[in-house]
Structure formats: structure tokens, C-alpha cells
């Protein structure tokens, strides 16, 4: 196999005809407007339920409404603040006792795929649990 195999060459190879039938399509501006519409942030909120694992302290209030367009990183930061964690204190977060999401994943995406009974369940631990 040549070292170039599979390299992207969409600029040099014609797109399949299905993607290029552009005789009477909308204008570029309409397309850019469509793209902008998908960029609008979802203002809705979803319910996140925090659950301690192992020796992690239990939160008195563990249900919070969080803006869906937030990244999961914002959830981690919120949790650290609620727990009074200092920078460097270990905190591991998981969804559904199963996996650690990427910090740049949005709450909306996680909620859509993993919510249970209307809640996104976020487990937190002071040690790596399901790393």
C-alpha cells in the first residue's frame, strides 16, 4: 500500500454526483444562513443528578438544572465548586457509572444519548473508578 493511501483528496477527486447536482440550489448566502441557524446555542436546560461514588462526599442537594449548551467541562467545574475542591484535588466524573465523557462534549449531546428518567446521571469519585 502506498504511503498516500487513504489520504484526503476531496479537492482533487470529483465528489460523488449526488453531492454536486447544483444547477438550481439555494444561494451561498442561504447556505451560510442555514449554518448559522445550527450554530445558535440551545437555551434550554436539562436536569443533572450528581451521585457520589466510594468515599466522595455526598451533596445535600444533588439535582441541578444546567444549560444544555454548556460543555461537560462546565459541569465538572460546577461540581468542584459545590464540593469546595481546590485546584489539584482529584475528582473523576462518569456518566451512568460507565464512562468518562470528553470534557468538550456538550451537556445537550450527553443528555440526548444517556439521560435516564429525565436526568443525566453524573457520578463523581475521588479515585479512578471506571477509567
Amino acid at each position: 500500500m502506498s504511503p498516500m493511501a487513504g489520504s484526503p483528496d476531496t479537492h482533487t477527486r470529483a465528489l460523488p454526483s449526488a453531492w454536486t447536482s447544483l444547477d438550481s440550489g439555494p444561494s451561498m448566502q442561504e447556505t451560510l444562513d442555514a449554518l448559522e441557524a445550527y450554530k445558535k446555542k440551545d437555551p434550554s436546560k436539562v436536569v443533572v443528578r450528581f451521585k457520589a461514588v466510594g468515599n466522595a462526599p455526598i451533596m445535600k442537594q444533588n439535582l441541578y438544572k444546567i444549560t444544555a449548551s454548556n460543555r461537560f467541562q462546565a459541569v465538572i467545574q460546577f461540581l468542584r465548586k459545590e464540593l469546595g475542591w481546590k485546584a489539584g484535588d482529584p475528582l473523576f466524573t462518569y456518566i451512568n457509572l460507565a464512562f468518562a465523557p470528553a470534557p468538550d462534549d456538550t451537556v445537550a449531546n450527553l443528555y440526548k444519548s444517556f439521560a435516564t428518567e429525565g436526568h443525566l446521571i453524573v457520578n463523581y469519585s475521588t479515585t479512578a473508578a471506571w477509567g
Binding site: 449526488a18 453531492w19 438550481s24 439555494p26 442555514a34
Partner: peptide
């Protein structure tokens, strides 16, 4: 993404205005 990939691309004036790139390949419908 109905605004970029209209459900009925065969009916003018609706046309795909975008393409999906998967592992560098423009994949067919």
C-alpha cells in the same frame, strides 16, 4: 440537518448544499 440536506433533494429548488466527509472521503447518500 434539513437546511443543508433537504429531505427531498430531487424536487427543485431543494438541493444539497453541503457534503459529508468521513475519514477524508465524501461518502454517498
Amino acid at each position: 440537518l434539513p437546511l443543508l440536506f433537504p429531505p427531498t433533494p430531487s424536487d427543485p429548488p431543494f438541493q444539497d448544499t453541503a457534503y459529508p466527509l468521513i475519514q477524508g472521503v465524501a461518502a454517498p447518500h
